[in-house]
C-alpha cells in the first residue's frame, strides 16, 4: 500500500516544527515514530500536505528521574520498557510498555505520539492520568501545562490547539511505598486495550491514604475513576471495598460498543479488571 504524495521536512528545532505546523494546522502533520500515522497514510485515511519530522529534536527526548519525573514526547515504548531508573520509581511504565504491541513496534512508537493521537484504546492515556501527570505543550506564542485527565477530549481528539506540539510528560515523584498496577484485556488482533486499568495506591496502617484509578479502552476517552477513589480513601482495601470500587467505576463508564466487545461486556470487563488490579496491590 502506497500513501498519497506529501512533502517532507526534517524539523531542526521545536520552534521550526511549530512554525511549519502553524503554516497549515489542518494540512500539515507531525511524524516521529510514525507507527500510527504511517499505517493511516497507507490506508489513505489521511493525506497531509506536509509531514514535519520531529524525530531529531533533542528537546523532545529523554527520561529524567529527579524530584519530578520528565519523559520527553519522543521516548519510545522500548525505552520506557528498558529504563531502570524509571522502573525503580514508577514500575507501571515497565508493566504497560511490556504489553504494547511487539518489540519492533515498541522500538519506533513513541509515548508522545500515542498520547497526542488519543486512540481511545491506547494504553498510555490511562497510565499518565493515574500518575497525575501533566502534559507540556508548546505553541506559537506560549508554553503551557495541562493535567493529563483534561487532555483527552474525545475519540482521537485532545486539548492540543492548532500549532501546538506535545513536548513532554511530567509526573510528581510518588510517595515511598506507593504501589502500581497496569492490567489490560488485550484485543487479540490489534493488541490494543479492550479495557485497560492503571491503578496507583498508598496504604498507611492498612488504610488507603491515596488512590487513583484510570480506565482506557472502555469509553471514548481515558478517564479517572473518581467515584471509586473517593469510596476507597480512608478505608481498608477489603474484598467488599474493592468490589464497591469496581462497581462504581463500571457505573461511571459510558462504554463503547463494537463488533468485538459490546458496551455491556466492556462494562463487565471494567469491573473485573479494576477488582483484579486493586486485589493485586493488596499486600503486594
Amino acid at each position: 500500500m502506497i500513501p498519497a504524495s506529501f512533502d517532507y521536512v526534517r524539523a531542526t528545532s521545536l520552534s521550526h516544527a511549530i512554525g511549519l505546523l502553524q503554516d497549515d494546522p489542518d494540512g500539515n502533520k507531525l511524524v516521529a515514530g510514525g507507527h500510527t500515522l504511517i499505517p493511516t497514510l497507507k490506508l489513505r485515511l489521511a493525506s497531509p500536505a506536509l509531514l514535519i519530522d520531529i524525530s531529531g529534536i533533542d528537546e523532545l527526548r529523554g527520561i529524567e528521574v529527579a524530584d519530578c519525573i520528565r519523559i520527553g514526547a519522543l521516548t519510545t515504548h522500548a525505552e520506557l520498557l528498558a529504563s531502570k531508573p524509571l522502573r525503580e520509581v514508577l514500575p507501571i511504565f515497565h508493566q504497560a510498555a511490556d504489553m504494547i504491541a511487539d518489540p519492533q513496534v515498541r522500538n519506533r512508537g513513541t509515548i508522545g505520539g500515542s498520547l497526542a493521537n488519543a486512540d481511545p484504546a491506547a494504553d498510555w492515556p490511562a497510565v499518565v492520568i493515574a500518575l497525575k501527570g501533566e502534559l507540556e505543550l508548546a505553541g506559537p506564542t506560549r508554553r503551557r501545562r495541562i493535567a493529563a485527565r483534561d487532555f483527552f477530549v474525545d475519540i482521537m481528539t485532545t486539548a492540543l490547539e492548532p500549532g501546538e506540539v506535545l513536548v513532554a510528560i511530567h509526573m510528581p515523584r510518588p510517595n515511598r511505598g506507593a504501589k502500581f498496577r497496569y492490567r489490560k484485556i488485550r484485543h487479540p488482533a490489534s493488541g490494543y486495550a479492550v479495557v485497560g486499568v492503571a491503578a496507583t495506591l498508598c496504604l498507611r496502617d492498612d488504610i488507603v491514604s491515596e488512590v487513583m484509578i484510570a480506565i482506557t479502552g472502555a469509553t471514548s476517552r481515558a478517564f479517572a475513576a473518581d467515584s471509586a477513589s473517593t469510596h476507597l480513601i480512608g478505608k481498608p482495601l477489603s474484598t467488599e471495598n474493592i468490589a464497591m470500587a469496581a462497581s462504581l467505576t463500571g457505573e461511571q463508564a459510558e462504554c463503547l460498543s463494537d463488533h468485538y466487545a459490546s458496551a455491556d461486556y466492556r462494562k463487565h470487563l471494567v469491573k473485573t479488571e479494576v477488582s483484579r488490579a486493586l486485589a493485586s496491590l493488596n499486600g503486594a
Binding site: V31, H35, I38, L51, Q104, N107
Partner: peptide
C-alpha cells in the same frame, strides 16, 4: 500492516518493521 514482521530489518541496532518506516 505492521503485524507480521516479515519486513523486519535492523536500523541503528534496533529491529523495526520496514513497511512502517518512511
Amino acid at each position: 500492516t505492521s503485524q507480521c514482521g516479515a519486513c523486519t530489518v535492523d536500523i541503528d541496532g534496533q529491529a523495526v518493521k520496514s513497511c512502517t518506516v518512511l
